[in-house]
Computed example of a mutant assay.
Amino acid sequence: MSKSDTILIVEDEMIIAANISLQLTQLGYNVIDIIPRAEEVLPKLKQQIPDIILLDINLKGDLDGIELAHLIQKEYKIPIIFLTANADEVHFNRAKTTNPYGFISKPFKKLDLQRAIELVLIRIQEEKMNNPNETETFVISDSIFVRSHDKMIKININDILFIEAERNYCKIHCKEKEHLIVSTLKDLEDKLNVKSFLRVHRSFIINMHHIDEIASSHIVIAKKAIPVTAELKKQLLLHIQKV
């Protein structure tokens, strides 16, 4: 359990959201963003996956927090803690259908927030230990099979442009689409033992066949600028000659 765990706050009362953010920061957690509207959450998740989402049930707009939670769960497996000032039976029963990792009733104390987060992080670790197959990855000939939620997806290795780390997740960028999987970049690096792939940054593995540009401090693949250190750039140039 690490205090570098990331948290996304979805709360339309900005004074409350700012107070939550301050308390979490004081506890040592990394608040990646505060989002006031449900419609802005899924685009944010395509950019960065948090470890936990703190989600207000009574969001203003077309979607409330419970409806948003259902949409999130169709694409991601992210623990959700509901924030609510309305703890009536109707809201509680609706919220239960999303299998949240917890509820925090407003107003709450800093200790309530701290304990809720710590209990969720413990549960996350226990789930990982009890589900070792969740991060399975298989490389067979010219394809890689990765586990995404409850199924295995086949990806043609030549179609992979680069792989980007997002904490306990990896985003595999391909020619046509992206695949978000539960895996560390190190695990994929160990299993994806292919000459054309090289780790050029702590957060990136690239397919050298798809490099469009090599600059002084970055490379470009499919219009994406990927950072590379001077030392790794030397290794990259040597590897390119051998590929």
Rank of each mutant, 00 (worst) to 15 (best):
N99I: 12
S203T: 05
V200F: 07
V139S: 05
K154V: 11
I81K: 12
I80G: 03
I81V: 14
F82N: 11
T84Q: 12
Q114E: 11
N99L: 14
S183L: 09
E166T: 10
K175S: 05
E178H: 02
P132H: 02
A87R: 06
R167K: 10
I144P: 03
F108T: 04
E176K: 07
F82Q: 09
I160F: 06
I144M: 14
S141E: 14
E134T: 00
N133S: 09
R167V: 09
V194F: 08
E176Y: 00
T137I: 08
K177T: 09
S141D: 08
H149C: 00
F162G: 15
Y169H: 15
S196P: 00
A85M: 15
I140H: 03
A95H: 06
D190Y: 07
G102R: 12
N133R: 08
K195R: 01
M152H: 03
E89V: 15
L188D: 05
I181Q: 07
Q114I: 02
T137D: 07
A165N: 06
P132Q: 12
Q125R: 04
M129R: 13
I163M: 14
K151F: 03
D159P: 01
D190F: 14
E164R: 13
I157S: 01
V120E: 03
R199D: 09
N156S: 12
N93R: 03
S143T: 15
N156M: 11
L188H: 01
K177A: 00
H201Q: 12
K151Q: 09
P132E: 03
T135S: 04
F103S: 14
T97G: 14
L119F: 13
V194G: 04
V182Q: 02
A95I: 05
L161D: 10
C170N: 11
I160A: 12
S203E: 11
I172N: 07
E189P: 08
D88N: 15
S203K: 10
F108K: 05
N133C: 04
K195P: 00
K109C: 09
I140G: 01
N86M: 13
Q114H: 02
S183P: 00
R115H: 11
I157P: 00
E127Q: 14
L180V: 10
Q125I: 06
N130P: 03
K171Y: 01
I144G: 00
E164D: 09
E166S: 02
V194T: 00
T97L: 13
P107V: 04
Q114K: 10
N130A: 11
R94W: 09
K110M: 07
N156D: 13
K128G: 11
T184D: 10
E176W: 00
A87E: 10
T98N: 09
